[in-house]
Design a protein around this nucleic acid. Structure first.
Lengths: 201, 201
DNA sequence: GCTTTCTTGTGACGGATTTCACAAAGCTCA
DNA sequence: TGAGCTTTGTGAAATCCGTCACAAGAAAGC
């Protein structure tokens, strides 16, 4: 989130930012910002704050965003299609260089120079394209089987949109985007008798 | 996540489940499951486990999912369109009964019986449809202004897909879905010199 | 009815994370 | 140059959260 704020500050041509200002924009506290950043080094100047462009470069480097990552999209349904066009992935260095789908009617279509490949060739597609991270937008019931094949192809990062918990080896990292769970959390916070929870914590 | 697992177990016609089994499927530990559930009551039977259908009902009630919620989609772009069709929202009781977009070319289109309304009528649309939760899929730079109007319309829950931190009053709950941040977290975990972090914690 | 087996509910512990608070450092201006 | 103001970096304290471990409840077998 700090990187997102720094992107914004750089567009606004701000040259420095204090931990307090960074905290305000990122939705946290000044002390938290300083603790977080100090884990990776001393980037600020006392009395002044943090210089925006260097801190942004530092954070990009810390996050491993200095180069670019080769990403495959598995599942060319509505959500997959929307993500394929999502501009922020490329802006941050994630290039979707392969698309795979199980539906024969979709295989062979070309999306912006990328040809949709059949699911039964998943492993060879991932290996030959040198894929490092996969975005998984297949239906829940199919997700675990696809994830197994993805792992077998040597991929160690999965961004999972399927509403199931994937079981993968320890050296594979899965991050879930679970939109339904987020909505349900809103429901919990808003349900009629939730007022006391808000008051008492 | 427990509710998701219980949905699954009920489809499989399982009648009871132990904290251990629930933990396996939800990706956590048995002790964690018991602590979490015990916060809201004693739902299990010692020696037996939890009865699936009643626990599922309990969780749905705790989460405020007993009835249904009226939801508006603001932003009819690619992501908005994908979410409109996403079946799991309706399955869990979230009905998208209004769609709003700023683009005159889209206003007036009908999506599955819902007519897209113009952004300048946001407040009246939200109020007259009795909207309780909003899904925000507008571009980042527009998000705060739209959120302000949403809050002014009395909505107290926002599912925010814009990659910015929204500032809202304390009685409004915002949940963020930040796909780019999730990818960046994968990048951090996978970047070449990340091996030592994994080993040492 | 009694023993065995299973599994919950929960207090105690310990590790992790956040907040607090302040010395040290840098800038500005006289 | 030095006083005053600002803001970082970081130990210490406080808080939060997950894990452990076990007493007690419930069923099953005999």
């Amino acid at each position: 989130m700090y990187l997102r704020v720094l992107d914004e500050l750089e567009r606004e041509a701000e040259t420095t930012v204090s931990s307090q200002a960074l905290a305000n924009r990122a939705g946290t506290t000044a002390a938290q910002v300083r603790k977080d950043l100090s884990l990776f080094g001393s980037f600020g100047k006392r009395g002044l704050g943090y210089a925006v462009p260097p801190l942004r470069r530092h954070l990009r480097s810390i996050l491993g965003l200095s180069g670019s990552w080769k990403v495959a999209l598995i599942g060319a349904g509505r959500i997959g299609a929307a993500l394929f066009e999502y501009p922020h992935f490329r802006e941050q260095g994630f290039e979707i260089v392969a698309v795979v789908d199980q539906d024969p009617a979709k295989v062979g279509s070309v999306w912006n120079d990328v040809t949709i490949q059949p699911a039964d060739q998943l492993e060879s597609v991932l290996r030959s394209a040198g894929i490092e991270i996969v975005i998984l937008t297949v239906p829940g019931p199919a997700a675990q089987a696809v994830a197994d094949a993805v792992v077998a192809s040597g991929v160690r990062g999965i961004l999972n949109f399927a509403p199931v918990q994937l079981r993968v080896p320890d050296d594979v990292k899965v991050n879930d985007v679970n939109m339904t769970v987020e909505l349900e959390a809103l429901s919990f916070a808003l349900k009629p008798d939730a007022a006391d929870r808000r008051a008492k914590g």
